[in-house]
Amino acid sequence: MSYTLIFDMDGTLFQTDKILELALEETFDYLRLEGLWEKTAPVEEYRTIMGVPLQVVWETLLPDHPNDIRAKVNVIFLEILIENIRAGKGALYPNVEKVLDYLTTKSYSLFIASNGLPEYLAAIVDYYKLDRWIKETFSIQQIESQNKSDLVRTIIEKYDVEKGAVIGDRLSDIQAAKDNYLLAIGCNFDFAQQDELAQADEVIDDLTQLKDLVATLQL
């Protein structure tokens, strides 16, 4: 039986932190020019909610702004993120390619399930050629509920998944695994919260640990 491993993207495979601050600063520069923002860009506040859908991001960071402004800001932010990815300003986490290659040779089926938008995810997959190992990348935008548990269920149903794990850094990843009776592997990386990781079945500090973990666990 082929085991399935479903990866989160931001804060799990991709070091979003490397392009996040620059993109936020440029986005909020636009708001300042429009007279819609006076303070510094809320970088630290974004870090605490990293991994939620972008709609929730702008509802949180811009609670007093109308939806049309949030929509415009979202477009600007996404464009800047993609420009930075294509310019090579981002980075995968250490050993991502080595680990994905190893898992593929061991016949694991690999997928990505992310709260990121399709264009953003495609930019990362294309730049780093992740489709060498990843069978398919799924965005939260593909499902009406905007719920990661439902997104993971989409993968399970499409590919007849029976056993596997969800690997991610935030509670939505852990919950998605548990709601779908998969193993929850928490990544203690940049955006991880210790109270959330405490709910995972297993926690790793480096992706290389995944090689031994999946080999010894009965998923």
Rank of each mutant, 00 (worst) to 15 (best):
T4N: 11
T4C: 14
L5F: 12
I6N: 11
M9S: 14
D10Y: 09
D10A: 09
T16C: 10
K18W: 04
L20H: 10
L20S: 07
E21C: 00
L22E: 11
L22A: 11
A23H: 03
A23Q: 02
L24Y: 05
T27H: 08
F28V: 03
Y30Q: 02
L31D: 03
E34D: 06
L36R: 07
W37L: 04
W37N: 02
W37D: 03
E38H: 12
K39A: 09
P42M: 10
V43F: 14
Y46R: 02
R47D: 01
T48D: 13
T48I: 12
M50H: 13
V52K: 12
V52F: 15
Q55D: 13
W58L: 06
W58G: 00
L61C: 06
L62S: 05
P63T: 01
P63M: 04
P63V: 02
D64T: 07
D64M: 05
D68M: 05
A71I: 14
V73A: 14
N74S: 15
I76H: 07
F77M: 06
L78E: 14
L81D: 10
R86E: 14
A87Y: 10
G88N: 06
G88Q: 09
G88R: 09
K89Y: 12
K89M: 14
G90C: 10
A91Q: 11
A91P: 01
A91Y: 06
Y93A: 02
P94L: 02
P94S: 04
N95F: 14
N95T: 01
V96H: 05
V99C: 03
V99Y: 10
L100H: 09
D101N: 15
L103I: 09
K106I: 03
S107E: 15
S109G: 00
F111H: 10
I112S: 08
S114V: 07
L117N: 13
P118C: 11
P118R: 05
E119I: 07
A122V: 02
A123L: 04
I124Y: 05
I124P: 00
I124S: 05
V125E: 09
D126F: 08
D126Y: 09
Y127H: 12
K129L: 08
D131Q: 15
D131I: 02
R132V: 00
I134Q: 05
S139R: 04
Q141D: 12
Q142P: 00
N147H: 07
N147F: 04
K148Y: 12
S149L: 01
D150R: 03
L151I: 05
T154P: 00
T154A: 05
T154C: 06
I156P: 01
E157M: 11
K158Y: 11
D160W: 07
V161Y: 07
E162G: 13
E162V: 06
G164Y: 11
A165Q: 03
I167K: 03
D169K: 09
R170A: 11
L171K: 10
L171A: 08
Q175G: 00
D179G: 13
N180F: 08
L182W: 09
C187K: 00
N188S: 12
F189R: 03
D190L: 14
F191K: 10
A192I: 11
A192G: 06
Q193V: 07
E196Y: 13
L197Q: 02
A198V: 10
A198Q: 10
A198W: 08
A200T: 12
V203W: 10
V203M: 01
V203I: 15
V203H: 07
V203G: 04
D205R: 13
T208A: 01
L210C: 08
D212M: 12
D212L: 13
V214P: 04
V214Y: 05
L219F: 13
